[in-house]
Design a protein around this nucleic acid. Sequence first.
DNA 1: GGGCGATAATTGTCTAACAAATGCGCGCTT
DNA 2: AAGCGCGCATTTGTTAGACAATTATCGCCC
Lengths: 253, 253
Amino acid sequence: MNSAEPDNRGAPASESIAEALRALILEGSLGPDARLPGEQELAQRFGVSRPTLREALKRLAAQNLIRTRRGAAGGTFVNRVGWEEAREQLAATTTLLVSTTPIDAEPLAEARLTLLLACAPLACARRREAHLAALQAEIAFAEAPDTDDRAFCASDVRFHRVLGEATDNPLLALHLAGAVEAVQPLLNMLSYRMRDRAAILVRHRAIAERLEARDSAGMATELEALAAYTLALVREAQKLRAARRTPKAGDAD
Amino acid sequence: MNSAEPDNRGAPASESIAEALRALILEGSLGPDARLPGEQELAQRFGVSRPTLREALKRLAAQNLIRTRRGAAGGTFVNRVGWEEAREQLAATTTLLVSTTPIDAEPLAEARLTLLLACAPLACARRREAHLAALQAEIAFAEAPDTDDRAFCASDVRFHRVLGEATDNPLLALHLAGAVEAVQPLLNMLSYRMRDRAAILVRHRAIAERLEARDSAGMATELEALAAYTLALVREAQKLRAARRTPKAGDAD
DNA sequence: GGGCGATAATTGTCTAACAAATGCGCGCTT
DNA sequence: AAGCGCGCATTTGTTAGACAATTATCGCCC
């Protein structure tokens, strides 16, 4: 009646308590925006001290499952997990993975292209005016002369996100956006020259045009061309970096 | 020289400290399996007390970024994030999302099918004997008479995971597996009848056969057939459930 | 030389208290 | 009587020190 299960095979109390609360939340006993009891009461219920219980709560907070507010009407509340938050978390996980794992740029670009190709038919079939407008807005933003490389890259990510959203399938859009958001910064460690940007924008315009015409096959062709161009850019940058390293082997790191 | 940035706009200390450490880990200053200083020293460095610092560490632990071990040679260590862990986390996030968000089965099934179709050409081109063997193993496991619904569903998930791995693209496999793992339990809230299982296994065998023959188009056809069948099953189950509800509106919950 | 116990290092947990924020209501003022 | 501001209660955030539990290591004894 107090601490759910006594112990999870010697796991720290804060961990098993976090899992117990997590199960409660997922089970549906606590709907979104529901308020949990105060920390003192929770601590008593689980039979631990307040700092220990707080560690458990912080674990859940780190997973975006709960939020806390101080003050009189404060407390701990169950978070509503929306598509936005999920996308961010998904992108964070994937980003961490690809940035700490030795992997070539080629499979990353290939994965991005493959997901985009998968979305193309659905996007062409279901796109609405708002999607076309969003695409045009990103193109306009990206071709502005005062857009720096960082902003250009972010806009590029958003451009592809709109393509996912045009499928009208939130789960599909979620995974596409997560992958693109994680891959793009890796592919963009090079800083674009202006003519590279222009070439990319040409591709983007063509893609938007094919989407407007609901021409799925043509869109696939353009997506492949864009992927090929991006990959060529990355390869070129890698070759340059390698060439800069080989002639003078002992320069200042 | 002590606490990195003083405060993140009034955010709790444990949160900003967690973010600071997270940045340190991601920045690469602390490689995998690196040992962090002890809690006391860290607390002094960040200018907080040990419980507060521990809350920060628990946040990171909840994200699988660190692990802790007690004892003399214990401490806090940076976790190596592998494809397995990422897949689990990705599946957990997506599962939480789709299980707390009102969404029809149809887009879920569509997303799954779309991702599988995207993987099909690559999988056919690159599959190895090990993949075919893994597929056959899952088929054999699934058709065993003592396999219950739970195990059947898990095997189904693994079957699709192998399809993703056959693309030889870990990022693609990651997202496919994450989506399938999250969607499958939702589609399988119904318990399969034996003839449903048999029909699914027929499809699985056909898919494995098309993969072996490197017949991408044929595989796509089979995948679509499987998706259509699965969706029909779900629809039928939903209709049954709805029909059971309408005639007697006030029965016992 | 090998097994075994003391030991030290380190995380896990507890207790008690204070600080800070925040909504609410009371009382003061107009 | 109405409006405004100040205190107060509630709740999370943080601190301090101490003890418990665990585990590798080193020295001691056989």
